[in-house]
Design a protein around this nucleic acid. Structure first.
Length: 756
DNA sequence: AGCACGCCGACT
DNA sequence: GTCGGCGTGCTC
């Protein structure tokens, strides 16, 4: 029997299966999804592998599996379907995809242990690194010693071993059980035995504390007591069951129509009291069926908040969080309790799409419009696709909850793929004010805050209420805009704002070859008022400190605060809080709901004119985030105050329809998928030639390709780089094979379309 | 020659 | 990720 194995080496040259003979003793027991240890390379180094297929014949197999680690598969069929989905993205490293799916206590790492055999022939300096047992564990910082040690090994002076170690040390709690009480002789021992008083087991720690370790040791030795190791588990702190607020009459009907035991996607639009009760009832129903619930939130800092919230509403069940902030051990404990069905609610960020459950009964994605669900670096996967697959496989409902549906949501509802549950509030009482900054300029106000916003902030302060001022993230790709007529130079072919490259003083398109020189003079109104956009949050802080020297000003962004700190700030914020918050769009992430009186969006243009194909939708989402959390007032300051998206805030359907038809014409998502390809090589000419060849080959596969264009920067680490943009419905294997690196040309791919 | 370093190709 | 094999360049 042959096993096809993926080895845990994340490298494009090893991105394939390797066939091994299955030892006769394991033929009956080995299954797909089990971990194995296999010999690898000439030296037969031991590596951890995962069995992905079992078959009867192979031309390639030459070596035999050394050891099968697991008794049962650690990845079920469900996860192999997810794996297939992840591998649809070209050049995805199989080992990385598997690593993301495997519970982290099943992962291993490798250490090198060096033993000193011959002290005579090793110089004193080197000798000093060994401990008293003449052993030494090679650390990252000691890598430079390795070649020397290898030479010493050849001569037989030292021994080098590579040891596979689990990443998580499982923790056991030791209990003592009374084996044979009649064996005791001394009074003290009798006392210990009587301490059991009918109980089956007692914590060893407890007994040692009272009677000391030596007498306990003796009792174990003469067979009176016996040790019992039990895997440490999460403490179950659950109490009585709380009755939920009853569903309002108008929520009854949509609730009753939910099919809890089959797959369907429900889009709940509206994040308010109604949607909260609705979701709580759905969660309750799933728990009462004896099943488990997975809840996804977009940001790490939200995990704790929702754990608290769910713990409050469901006091009778165990709620666990899944976050990369947790230690391996914490995650392991949570995972174990989910596998035992002890924990019923799991709350996590996108990495929790791979969490294993005993009996998953429903998936909830909160703030489902949020961009943060998509990985922007490292391994790419689409959490929505993966969770849809999981829901389908398990025949359970998938709930999306958002305050504003996305373009894709709108499209899917239209296609009939989503069941739409409208819980939006009809009476919306936040006052929205649009400020035309061109007018402010005419009035001689060159400051960051308009008159209107200043007044609103003052008003909030006198009422002891808080405000939040939002600016776009610093360092994001910048564009230029005329301060007097709000003209933005755009790529004539794609209508996407041109990037301002400060170094060269050029304006460049992201997607096509187009570029032009930056000039201060506006081609439309002729005034010398063209300026790069992208003022910093620091500038705003300095300015506010000057204007409001006696007020508390708090900065909220990912760079300055950890997720715990962010959560603490949000938790302790109340509407009646005389404070001014400033932050990036991060601060608009909606946990601030009902906690902020006034939201001011400064330079909304920078949110609306991002150099991306979905700039309008991203801008629309951000403004809706702001609308969602602003309790009393929302002030939007923009130079281009007639921007399509600004008007869309009050006429959403028009926005969806117009934007969707644009996307259809331009063959953009949700009608097509996009993929950026970056080709790099030492020769500029060759890399361009190759890009054209690749483009033609892809055209033969019926894939539309835009480009090539030069990447920014064009030359990096002695390699010239160009970009292609692919529009496609589906990627066949033949296409994937075109997108692999060769000796001369390196190919990277990006599903997020963020390269320029 | 001996050693240090860096690059390349292969791995079932 | 890790090895050997190779080339290069430095030093005794």
């Amino acid at each position: 029997m042959i096993a096809s194995v993926i080895v845990d080496i994340k490298h494009k040259e090893i991105n394939q299966v390797f066939d091994y003979f299955v030892p006769d003793t394991e033929v009956e027991t080995i299954k797909r999804g089990m971990r194995v240890i296999v010999p690898f390379t000439d030296h037969n180094i031991e590596r951890l592998g995962l069995v992905v297929e079992l078959k009867n014949e192979s031309d390639a197999a030459t070596k035999t599996i050394k050891e099968v680690i697991d008794l049962t598969p650690i990845l079920s069929d469900e996860f192999f379907i997810l794996l297939d989905e992840m591998l649809k993205v070209p050049n995805t490293l199989i080992a990385s995809a598997i690593e993301a799916m495997i519970p982290n206590d099943m992962l291993m790492y490798y250490i090198k242990k060096i033993t000193l055999l011959d002290e005579e022939n090793v110089d004193t300096e080197l000798k000093s690194i060994f401990n008293t047992k003449n052993e030494f564990i090679l650390k990252k910082k000691d890598q430079n010693l390795y070649p020397k040690l290898r030479r010493l090994e050849e001569k037989g002076y030292v021994k080098i071993e590579t040891i596979l170690t689990p990443k998580v040390k499982k923790e056991y709690i030791t209990y003592l059980i009374l084996k044979n009480g009649s064996l005791v002789k001394t009074d003290r021992h009798k006392e210990i035995v009587s301490h059991f008083d009918g109980r089956y087991k007692i914590l060893k720690k407890e007994l040692v504390e009272i009677y000391g370790s030596s007498s306990i040791k003796t009792l174990i030795k003469n067979g009176c007591l016996e040790e019992l190791d039990i895997l440490k588990r999460l403490e179950d702190e659950t109490t009585e069951r709380l009755e939920l607020k009853p569903l309002k009459d108008k929520l009854q009907k949509p609730f009753n129509e939910i099919e809890f035991n089959q797959f369907n996607t429900y889009l709940i639009e509206g994040m308010n009291e109604d949607s909260r009760t609705f979701i709580q009832h759905a969660v309750r129903k799933i728990i009462d069926q004896g099943q488990q619930v997975l809840v996804l939130v977009p940001e790490k800092f939200m995990v704790d908040h929702y754990i608290d919230l769910f713990k409050e509403g469901f006091k009778d069940v165990l709620v666990v969080g899944i976050s990369s902030d947790q230690t391996y051990k914490e995650r392991y404990l949570n995972q174990e309790s989910l596998l035992d069905n002890d924990a019923r609610i799991a709350i996590g960020t996108r990495l929790s799409v791979f969490t294993q459950f005993k009996n998953l009964g429903g998936i909830f994605i909160l703030f489902s419009h949020d961009e943060a669900y998509y990985p922007f670096e490292g391994l790419y996967y689409d959490p929505f696709k993966l969770l849809t697959l999981r829901a389908e496989i398990n025949q359970i409902p998938l709930f999306l909850n958002t305050h504003t549906k996305t373009l894709n949501d709108f499209y899917q509802i239209d296609l009939g793929n989503y069941t739409y549950i409208d819980l939006k509030k009809d009476n919306f009482d936040t006052k929205i004010t649009l400020v035309d900054m061109k007018e402010e300029l005419k009035l001689g106000n060159t400051k960051m805050l308009s008159h209107v916003l200043r007044e609103k902030i003052d008003e909030a302060l006198t009422l002891n209420k808080n405000s939040l001022l939002v600016l776009n993230q610093k360092g994001l790709s910048r564009f230029v805009m005329c301060r007097s007529c709000s003209h933005v130079p755009k790529d004539p072919a794609t209508d996407i704002p041109l990037n301002y490259i400060e170094k060269t003083g050029m304006l460049r398109s992201n997607l096509t070859k187009y570029q032009e020189h930056f000039t201060k003079t506006c081609p439309i109104c002729g005034k010398d008022s063209m300026k790069p956009v992208g003022a910093g949050i620091e500038l705003l802080k300095t300015y506010l400190n000057k204007v409001y020297p006696n007020e508390t000003i708090i900065q909220i962004d990912k760079d300055t605060l950890s997720s715990k700190e962010t959560y603490e700030i949000i938790k302790n914020t109340t509407l009646k809080d005389r404070k001014i918050f400033i932050g990036t769009q991060m601060a608009l992430k909606s946990l601030f709901k009902d906690k902020i009186s006034l939201v001011g969006v400064l330079l909304a243009d920078s949110f609306l004119k991002l150099p991306r194909f979905d700039a309008n939708e991203v801008g629309f989402k951000i403004l809706n985030d702001a609308k969602h959390i602003a309790k009393d007032d929302l002030v939007i300051q923009a130079y281009d105050s007639n921007h399509f998206v600004l008007s869309a805030l009050s006429s959403e359907d028009i926005f969806y329809k117009a934007e969707l038809s644009n996307r259809k014409v331009s063959k953009l998502p949700p009608f097509n998928e996009l993929l950026q390809i970056r080709i790099s090589a030492e020769s500029y000419l060759r890399v361009h030639q190759y890009a054209h060849i690749l483009k033609n080959k892809l055209a033969l596969e019926n894939i539309q390709v835009l480009g090539p264009i030069d990447a920014t920067p064009l030359k990096l680490e002695n390699h010239y780089r160009v970009l292609l943009l692919m529009k496609y419905q589906k990627i066949e294997e033949s296409v994937k094979s075109l997108l692999v690196s060769t000796k001369e040309f390196n190919i990277d791919i990006n599903k997020n379309i963020t390269w320029y």
